[in-house]
């Protein structure tokens, strides 16, 4: 069951972004590991979508972590302490350590942002942006792109099936794949452009290009306390970053 929403989507997004900034500022594997265990793991467990989020993190970060481990674990010419020698490829202590630091950083990056994104209430986010007087064109593009994504994927699947029924066979050769990609993308794009043209007329007729403030039909879930909390979090992380990096620069 999805969790009960406590904070406004903007607050959650900002908190996730600031956590990523903190991980970059501190730049220590111990801190990244602590964030992963003490923040990301509980957040995933309390999200109410444990399976979906875990699977998404695995699918997005898994291949990257594995390829990063292979790249730095086997090919790290700066490494001095050689653990295994395969001729061209050498496993070095420094390479493994670099892969671990980068892997933990990527783990936090993926875990934090995907957990927030997959529990995000997009209509609530767009309503908040409208209430806070964000650029109307930006709000339209964000809402429209997120809304159109499943529609594009579904239409692409339908076109692929229709083309396969007409004899489309995707072979292993690049030319065959290229031809298949064109066979699917061309009708997909034409259909989407026709839809876009109709949407253009409808938006023009409803005064989309006017400059008066827009009204959202959804209530504003943002509170003054959260707005202050957002400013406070940003200032606190900024001040901490300056102090931490300043201390690192000083002898």
């Amino acid at each position: 069951m999805p969790r009960r929403r406590i904070y406004n989507p903007l607050t959650e997004l900002l908190a996730a972004a600031l956590l990523v900034v903190l991980v970059l500022v501190v730049n220590r594997w111990e801190f990244s590991f602590a964030v992963l265990v003490l923040v990301v793991l509980p957040a995933v467990l309390l999200s109410g979508r444990i399976r979906q989020i875990s699977l998404a993190i695995l699918l997005v970060a898994g291949p990257l972590l594995l390829s990063s481990l292979l790249l730095h674990g086997l090919f790290y010419p700066e490494g001095r302490v050689i653990l295994l020698d395969f001729g061209v490829a050498r496993v070095t202590q420094e390479g493994l350590s670099f892969a671990a630091v980068m892997g933990l950083r990527m783990g936090v990056f993926t875990g934090v942002l995907l957990t927030v994104a997959m529990t995000l209430d997009i209509p609530d986010l767009l309503a908040t942006m409208t209430h806070r007087r964000w650029n109307r064109k930006l709000v339209f593009i964000l809402g429209s792109a997120v809304g159109i994504l499943p529609h594009v994927a579904l239409r692409a699947r339908q076109i692929t099936r229709a083309q396969q029924a007409r004899g489309l066979v995707v072979g292993r050769e690049p030319i065959s794949r290229f031809r298949a990609l064109l066979t699917v993308t061309t009708p997909l794009v034409i259909g989407l452009l026709v839809d876009a043209s109709e949407r253009n007329h409808m938006l023009q007729a409803r005064g989309f290009s006017s400059s008066v403030p827009r009204t959202s039909y959804l209530p504003d879930t943002d509170t003054p306390r959260q707005r202050w909390a957002r400013r406070g979090m940003a200032v606190a992380v900024g001040a901490f970053s300056v102090l931490w990096l300043g201390a690192g620069v000083l002898p």
Partner: peptide, 24 residues
């Protein structure tokens, strides 16, 4: 921020479709 105000509605409606194609 600098580009959005200068875009016409016909450009704006095609941008979400471009974004969706990129991602998909």
């Amino acid at each position: 921020g600098g580009i959005l105000p200068m875009l016409t509605t016909s450009s704006l409606v095609v941008m979400p479709l471009g974004i969706a194609l990129n991602i998909a």
